[in-house]
Design a protein around this nucleic acid. Structure first.
Lengths: 244, 244
DNA sequence: TAGTGGTCTAGACCACCCG
DNA sequence: GGGTGGTCTAGACCACTAG
């Protein structure tokens, strides 16, 4: 590249604290927030922004592409760039892991293990998990505690295939999720949420003395499309702060 | 640019169905899934991939940058690029909107409005919502139904400031969230989840005849950092399929 | 046909980390 | 000082949409 052009290079990080493409993103967001650019309205083309802001097209493009990925803009080839309507049609909840939840409130987290053993798959579990009856499966039954008081019960079934050493872990020390995350790529979950009244079993392990409504979360853990584990979480009468 | 270089341009979409940067992303994901590149392990540098795959650095960089944004990789300037450990430390739930939820099960959605009026802010609401006592606030009390049976109760308080025409809307026709989304940019929510037993009021409006545990979702809606609305959702004994 | 966004390249400068 | 990633540019080709 010629020296002349190097001198014209706009990348001068000493004076500009933020990268140019970030400045473009802020610029666009500002116009949207101000109401200058309305929802569903067309915003200037890449070419126009190149001229207005005196930047290269790749820089402008990166800013607009990222805003598109973030759902702020909507781009149509041959047509233009538009302000997207926020489509918060699905409410997303973020449930912190249990240890973080307890310690974030300044309390002490602990966990006791009631069972941690190899069982044969029962007929109903074979059906639910798509396994064959009688095969070996790991079952863990954990009581999570806040300042030594039970707050959550975890009843988990884990397939030996991918994590044969699961059964040798000490889950009073680390969370099951951390164990999976540390050795399996592409972890994902699906969930089912419901409410139920406490049972005798729950009364016993959670140290309850009267019927209590419980939040019931059923969570399956996958590595790619391979089922790793299925867990039932029970939070008696719980309250939960969730984000976003 | 010289003609020679144009002939060497690798962008030949007729033969390559996917863009090059997508191919690079797939290439990297494949190596991770195969186990060639382990969790926390270093992967080839941009320079090496440029040589191996015969592409420009910008193309390689875009692929690696996007994988980093997606949480698959971790990049450190001066050090290299590494396979990130899946950090699914927070469970994220996605709750579909009520109409979608009902219709996705092949049932008929409807909604009846019990209240939809302007009220003065009570002392306790003033405290909870950070408003001044006695000011005007919109209150809506909606019963959402599946095949004409009540499945969810919505008790909502809305600040007039940003959406003065809220009170003229017919929420038997559109969802409140859709109304907000259509006219306010940067919509976000926070939530609090809990369980509670049904009250007399709930029995009446939800047509229940005995005490039932209910899922209780408290949701505040913001546009940027400006509070728009706060709603209480009650799902008696509900079951919910949630994603991711 | 003109304008728009989608992709790609070659080359450059910078900031950072290490031995 | 050599290698790494982070950014930016000028210019090019392509695919799509519209009048």
């Amino acid at each position: 590249m010629h020296r002349k052009k190097l001198q014209n290079n706009k990348y001068t990080p000493i004076e500009d604290p933020k990268p140019l493409y970030q400045q473009v993103k802020s610029h666009v967001l500002q116009h949207i927030q101000n109401g200058d650019w309305e929802i569903h309205g067309r915003i200037p083309s890449e070419h126009e922004l190149v001229a207005t802001l005196s930047m290269s097209r790749m820089t402008i493009h990166r800013a607009l592409r990222e805003l598109t990925q973030e759902g702020i803009l909507k781009r149509v080839q041959g047509l233009g760039t538009f302000v997207a309507a926020p489509k918060q049609m699905a409410t997303t909840l973020s449930l912190p892991n249990i240890e973080e939840y307890v310690t974030s409130r300044g309390n002490r987290y602990s966990c006791t293990v009631q069972f941690h053993q190899t069982d044969p798959v029962t007929p109903e579990d074979a059906l639910k998990l798509g396994l064959k009856e009688g095969a070996d499966i790991y079952r863990s039954y954990l009581i999570h505690k806040e300042n030594n008081l039970p707050i959550m019960l975890e009843d988990r079934y884990t397939l030996p295939d991918r994590v044969p050493d699961y059964i040798n872990q000490d889950f009073t020390k680390i969370l099951v999720d951390s164990f999976f995350a540390a050795r399996c790529p592409f972890i994902n979950h699906d969930h089912q949420l419901s409410v139920q009244m406490s049972t005798q079993e729950i009364h016993h392990f959670m140290e309850l003395d009267h019927p209590t409504p419980c939040l019931h979360l059923y969570q399956r853990t996958w590595s790619g499309d391979k089922l790793l584990s299925a867990a039932k979480f029970l939070y008696p009468g719980g309250h939960f702060a969730l984000s976003c």
